[in-house]
C-alpha cells in the first residue's frame, strides 16, 4: 500500500495474525513506508524472516535488490528517457519543458523545491517555477 508521502496504513492487526494457520506466510511490500502489518519490522536479505505466532513474516525493505539483473534493466528502461532529456537539454530547459520531470526536482541550486520535504523538516519551500 503506497500513500504518497505518508506512512502505510496498518491493515492487519496482531490479533488477525493470531487467527492464521501456523506456517502461513506474510510478505510486506510496504516496509519502506513503515509496513502494513502491525507486527512488521524491517528485515534484510541476509536475515529476511521472523515469526510472530508461528506465522512467517518476510519484511525485506529492498526486495528488488535481490534480483539486480532484472531490476537494473527495469529501472533503466524507465529512467533513460528522462536521462536523455536532461543530458540533451540541460537541467533548466528540461524541467521547464517537462512538468513530469519538474515534479522530480527536490533541490535546485540551494533551494528546497519539494513541498512535502520542506514541510517534513521545517524548511522554506520555493516553487521551482520561481527559479527556472
Amino acid at each position: 500500500m503506497l500513500i504518497k508521502g505518508a506512512r502505510a496504513p496498518k491493515l492487519v492487526t496482531h490479533e488477525m495474525i493470531g487467527t492464521m494457520q501456523p506456517g502461513s506466510v506474510l510478505v510486506d511490500v510496504a516496509v519502506d513506508q513503515g509496513g502494513c502489518f502491525e507486527t512488521t519490522h524491517a528485515t534484510t536479505h541476509s536475515n529476511p524472516i521472523f515469526l510472530v505466532d508461528d506465522v512467517i513474516h518476510y519484511c525485506v525493505a529492498n526486495m528488488p535488490g535481490a534480483v539486480p539483473n532484472t531490476s537494473t534493466r527495469a529501472l533503466n528502461n524507465a529512467t533513460l528517457p528522462y536521462m536523455l532529456k536532461l543530458a540533451n537539454m540541460g537541467a533548466e530547459a528540461a524541467v521547464k519543458a517537462d512538468p513530469t520531470l519538474a515534479k522530480g526536482v527536490n533541490t535546485y541550486r540551494g533551494a528546497m523545491t519539494y513541498p512535502a520535504v520542506a514541510e517534513a523538516f521545517g524548511l522554506e519551500y520555493t516553487p521551482l517555477t520561481a527559479l527556472v
Binding site: 529501472l75 529512467t79 528522462y82 536532461l86 537541467a91 524541467v95 513530469t100 520531470l101 515534479k103 522530480g104 526536482v105 527536490n106 533541490t107 535546485y108 541550486r109 519539494y114
Partner: peptide
C-alpha cells in the same frame, strides 16, 4: 546540488 528524485517524478 540540483537533486532530481526518481520517486517524485510524477
Amino acid at each position: 546540488v540540483t537533486g532530481i528524485a526518481y520517486e517524485t517524478v510524477e
